[in-house]
Amino acid sequence: MTSKLMSLAAATFVGAWMAGCATTAITAPTAPTAAVTAPAPTIRPPPGVTWELAGAHDFEPNRPGLGSRQRYESAVGWVDVYHYGLGRNNWATGVSDPSFDAHFRSTINEVRQLAQSGQYTELKVGPTSDTRIGGLDFRTVSYRFRSQGRPLESRTFMTGLQGRLLKYRMNFPSPVEGDVDDIARDFIDKNLRSATGAIDASAPRSRPHRSQG
């Protein structure tokens, strides 16, 4: 009887020790969260998001320098893709052109002006950061606002490509089914390959950058 009790006690001690080890493994400190300028995370394409070209417009005949726009639509939102040069055909690839940041900030000011005019309400502008998609460095900013009473999540991504500027303006009615950033990155990655012919080696990797919009 004593032997059985000792065996039971030993088994209980071993079980408790193993449980303690398991608890320690679960609660061990994790690595710090990567900064926004770290290598881009793996894209997790949301299931069931199909984009279709809904229209296109060429601004050049009446407004030289403003290029063209293509609109893509899906069940989760719409994207306007702009190709333009503002009178230039030598914009540096990526985000390194000396005039790039000033122009990017002007696009943020355009959104703020829409809010001041009443077209957008409850506007919240997120921080500006750089990210890498499909071999290109992009500058990006996020917005939240209401348009005609409807809440929207919005993203702008911009880069230099083939001597011109490439801008994605993306809008998603809220709440969004899926992760907005995953949806945005997946669209851009596919568009770069199918519509622009860009490949992973199309741009050098930029140095880390972060600024406030």
Score class of each variant (00 low, 15 high):
residue 113 Q to V: 08
residue 210 R to G: 14
residue 118 G to I: 07
residue 171 N to Y: 04
residue 14 V to I: 15
residue 161 L to K: 01
residue 17 W to S: 12
residue 2 T to L: 13
residue 132 R to N: 12
residue 21 C to W: 10
residue 212 Q to Y: 10
residue 106 S to R: 01
residue 193 R to S: 11
residue 38 A to I: 12
residue 187 F to R: 04
residue 157 F to R: 01
residue 45 P to L: 08
residue 19 A to S: 12
residue 63 R to T: 14
residue 154 S to R: 06
residue 188 I to R: 03
residue 114 L to F: 06
residue 53 L to R: 05
residue 146 R to W: 01
residue 31 A to S: 12
residue 14 V to F: 10
residue 62 N to V: 12
residue 95 V to M: 08
residue 117 S to L: 10
residue 89 N to W: 01
residue 185 R to V: 13
residue 185 R to W: 11
residue 199 I to H: 04
residue 101 D to C: 01
residue 23 T to S: 10
residue 111 V to A: 03
residue 32 P to Y: 02
residue 181 D to E: 15
residue 63 R to D: 15
residue 26 I to G: 03
residue 190 K to S: 12
residue 17 W to L: 15
residue 130 D to F: 00
residue 105 R to N: 10
residue 134 G to T: 07
residue 31 A to W: 02
residue 68 S to W: 00
residue 201 A to C: 04
residue 124 K to P: 02
residue 136 L to A: 04
residue 149 G to E: 11
residue 180 V to S: 08
residue 152 L to H: 07
residue 51 W to I: 13
residue 100 F to H: 02
residue 35 A to N: 10
residue 208 P to T: 00
residue 156 T to G: 00
residue 3 S to G: 07
residue 31 A to P: 13
residue 184 A to W: 07
residue 213 G to L: 11
residue 35 A to D: 14
residue 192 L to I: 06
residue 60 E to G: 07
residue 145 F to D: 09
residue 180 V to C: 10
